[in-house]
Amino acid sequence: MILYKTDAEIELMKQSARLVSKTLTEVAAMLKPGITTMQIDRLCAEFIRDHKAIPSFLNYHGYPFTICASVNDVVVHGFPNNIALKDGDVVSIDFGVILNGWHGDHAYTFLLGETSEDVLQLMRITKESLYKGIEKAVAGNRVGDISYAIQEYTERKHGYGVVRELVGHGLGRSLHEDPQVPNYGKRGNGPRLKENATLAIEPMINMGTKDVYTDDDGWTVRTRDGKPSVHFEHDVCVKKNKALILSDYSIIEKAEQANSNLNTSYYTLKHEAVAV
């Protein structure tokens, strides 16, 4: 059953989502080669608690950390560790917070230093696919319209692997609510979207095969072929004509661009693509 929120509840959810965005902004400012994802986990935990919120992921079904830190071929659910990050790493940070009883939950992928054109392209296409999905998150459409838009752009147009085992989801007082929001599917299929449904839309796109496997830890999901994966996620509220994005990438992007250790050259690729 899809749970619809009041306008007042949407405002509270926006506060939760924006705290995730602010925390990711702190990550964007401190990321550099030599630091570890465990250091990032500690920073996020402290920042969240300093803002009177609770980490959503910590102890969720036994998950032992505040964040998921997925590097290179890790798609999602990577455990933070004490391995130093290095130039060329693809680093996805995903986590949630509970603030005033409501969850925020989104993800952002960063690039450290120099990398290949193939990785830059994967970053651009995955991020753009997120917004193509969001464009379909309007009242009267169906979940399959979001799914189709993401798959069409990433898999059919660019040949990337769209992960099947992991999907987006509803969001609210619970971290995972109905409906599930796959990144693949058919237009016109799935539950019909109504105003004030709240969704976490999150394309998880692999450079190579769509196939994945889970490490012995029971959490870490990797690409079957060892090629990199990229993950972007926004918290979104369904509206009549245009979806309301509750999270805020603009502050993350500003910090990312100000950090000389991070590679944002795919932004230029994006602007060129839009201009065509």
Rank of each mutant, 00 (worst) to 15 (best):
I40L: 02
L262P: 00
G78E: 04
L269N: 09
Q15E: 10
W102I: 09
C44M: 04
I93P: 00
C237T: 04
N259R: 05
R224C: 13
D94I: 03
H234D: 10
L99A: 04
Q15H: 12
I83T: 15
K5W: 11
D217F: 05
P228D: 13
E272I: 14
K210T: 14
F65K: 06
A273V: 14
G161P: 06
P228Y: 07
T220K: 03
A45Y: 13
E195C: 08
V238Y: 04
T268C: 11
L269D: 11
L3F: 14
V163A: 01
G88R: 07
K270Y: 10
L262A: 12
S250M: 13
L175W: 07
G170A: 08
C237G: 01
S129L: 02
T220F: 07
K254P: 08
M13S: 05
T154M: 12
D105P: 05
D178T: 15
I205D: 02
G78V: 01
T126V: 06
L130A: 03
D215N: 13
R173D: 15
L120P: 02
I201W: 02
H169K: 13
G113C: 09
A69G: 05
K194G: 15
H234A: 09
E46Y: 10
E9T: 01
Y63C: 02
V181F: 12
F47C: 01
T109M: 03
S260Q: 15
V90A: 02
N261C: 10
E165W: 10
V27N: 02
V74T: 13
H103Q: 12
I40Q: 02
Y153D: 06
Y213S: 07
T268F: 11
F232P: 03
E177G: 04
K132C: 12
Y184R: 12
S174F: 10
T115K: 12
A273M: 14
S116E: 15
G226I: 11
Y108W: 08
N206K: 11
R49Q: 11
D50E: 14
M30K: 08
Y148K: 09
I48A: 01
L193F: 11
R42K: 15
P182G: 11
G96F: 00
Q257S: 13
N183A: 14
L193K: 05
E155T: 09
L246R: 00
E117R: 15
R222G: 00
N189C: 14
A137W: 03
L262I: 06
E135A: 13
C237F: 06
T209S: 13
D178W: 15
A137Y: 06
V90F: 04
E114T: 10
R187E: 10
D145T: 00
E233N: 07
V236N: 03
D41I: 00
E9I: 00
E152W: 07
D41R: 02
P64T: 04
F95R: 01
T115V: 13
H61V: 10
A53T: 05
V163E: 08
F65E: 04
A28Y: 01
E195Y: 08
G208E: 15
P80K: 03
T115M: 04
K5R: 12
